[in-house]
Design a protein around this nucleic acid. Sequence first.
DNA 1: TTGAAAGCGGTACCAT
DNA 2: ATGGTACCGCTTTCAA
Lengths: 343, 343
Amino acid sequence: MTKADIHDVAKAAGVSISTVSRAFTRPDLVSDKTRRRVLDIADRLDFNISRSATALKSGRTNRVALLMNEEITSWFNTEVFAGLESVMHPAGYDISLFQHIDTAENRREFFTDLPIRRNVDAVFVASFAIDPPEVEQLKRIHVPIIGINIPSTTGFDASISIDDEEGMYRATQHLIGLGHRHIVYPCSEATDMDASIDARGRGFIRACEGASARRGDLDWRVLSVPRGPEFVDSALSALLALDEFPDAICCQMDMMAIPMIIKLERYGRRTPRDYSIIGFDDSIYAREMGLTTMRQDPRAMGRSAARKALRLINGEELDAGKAHETVEAQLVLRDTDAPYTAS
Amino acid sequence: MTKADIHDVAKAAGVSISTVSRAFTRPDLVSDKTRRRVLDIADRLDFNISRSATALKSGRTNRVALLMNEEITSWFNTEVFAGLESVMHPAGYDISLFQHIDTAENRREFFTDLPIRRNVDAVFVASFAIDPPEVEQLKRIHVPIIGINIPSTTGFDASISIDDEEGMYRATQHLIGLGHRHIVYPCSEATDMDASIDARGRGFIRACEGASARRGDLDWRVLSVPRGPEFVDSALSALLALDEFPDAICCQMDMMAIPMIIKLERYGRRTPRDYSIIGFDDSIYAREMGLTTMRQDPRAMGRSAARKALRLINGEELDAGKAHETVEAQLVLRDTDAPYTAS
DNA sequence: TTGAAAGCGGTACCAT
DNA sequence: ATGGTACCGCTTTCAA
């Protein structure tokens, strides 16, 4: 017995295939009795509407693309994915994931082949910059393009981004406000890919330059180390190589701050007794560590982006001025910051 | 100008739609010259083969389902997903994710509605137990069912699982071998869902009972605390409430071990000076923490499961005895274990 | 090597 | 409320 199709169900139920179809997709157009019988028989026959057929007929694909810079396994990317999924899945969409749109080669391959062309109903771009020619190529697929944490909204139909620059500015201001005068910003080197990270560095610098101009006694510096699995150790050794250990450390992200706290403890440096440290993200273990940090909520961003996408797919207008959204990071005060005390 | 379809391309290239189709899917059947021209024009017209149409015609869906107990955001689930994705995506498959198949209600809903019926080419079940009636329902969709970390292979066409019981047995043996005689196993309460977790507890108990029988001087206990975001704090307070602080702590997972180390440090308990501790998973920050742990590689399991699925989808047989695989966890020695010394 | 045409499994318009 | 039917966009014989 091969799989039953719509005709088998129609026959078994003594109705036409139109009625079977309607019983599934427009139940209100079918009499109660008929609908119940049809659905019952369909269930018995293991029948279900084919998404491929529906997609073909409707001209939609019921699929969206998600472009990511690196891997989905990073905290940020996973959360974004979970947020998108929580809205798109119930709406009947699959998410087709394209990771590692990061190296020049991968990018070129993706943007010239454009494998998603005519095969997705929307495209999400998560946390990387695409340059103008790439935007142009993307637009050729003629579907909404929604950005998540993107540096420029040019070419995007909608977006939601965190204000990294302002967030890190406020984090730095917080440390300065506590009286710290020797502040270090350990970070992995800027890439032209990860705009979020770069913006954070600018926020740190702006806060420090402002404070310096106002008071003049601020000793601050950026400790830039190569990217890679060893970046924390690199930052750590750079930190320990300084003439004087800083009062305060402003971290590019929690993933820098958390191991750093653990390792500094092994060198006898304890927070907040010996130094204040602040993270960025409020990601895994931040709460357990008691890490003071700037919280962002990538899952909520994913949800918001998904809702915008659904509206655009359905041809609805986004409320004026609501297409592009910026959200602020929130300072979460915990146990790794304290007022400066001469030691 | 509306989107070009296969006819537009055919016309522009002066060939039939058959030739356009073949130029994409069976390039070898089309003359070089023709193929080049067709593909060129297709590109110019932003044309691409429709996956929906291909799927419909071929009877395949180019989609697989992934069933998860909780959320994709857990370390294990993310890694499994990444592993599956790395194989399935290049093979042309989307992964349709079904999270939270955990509560009785969600399960019932999923298994009776069976929304994936006739709409996926394979089903992956990640780290939860499905009971016999549920297996029966799943089988009604008549596609391969592949398990990842499942307690029983009954009803599955293929599977790959880690041997949690043996892994935790060896972890415990390691601590006993170091001379520790007072060992505690903090864990969150067993559920009938998460079989991995339960098996680990059994491994701990088996090791302890064995050692007790052999030598008799072992003081061991399981510290079971309610699940939830506070489970580490619950375990910690239970631990500190013991009459005597243990020599060694055997953790159900790294997510228990890592915060515990950090928090114990604040109570003056340092590892490995005051106690040994071992984790399970080798997940995030384990390396940076220097945590001695049992490593598992869920990403590799995802890849393996995906490869099995592709073979089954293509009607190939799996090598005899290779359908169901069990892998061992690996002991990773780092800095949180040391021989027992009277203190 | 290429073209014509019959479906794949539905949807939705038009009748009744 | 229900049925008949053209068609969605491609794949694949079968012929030429």
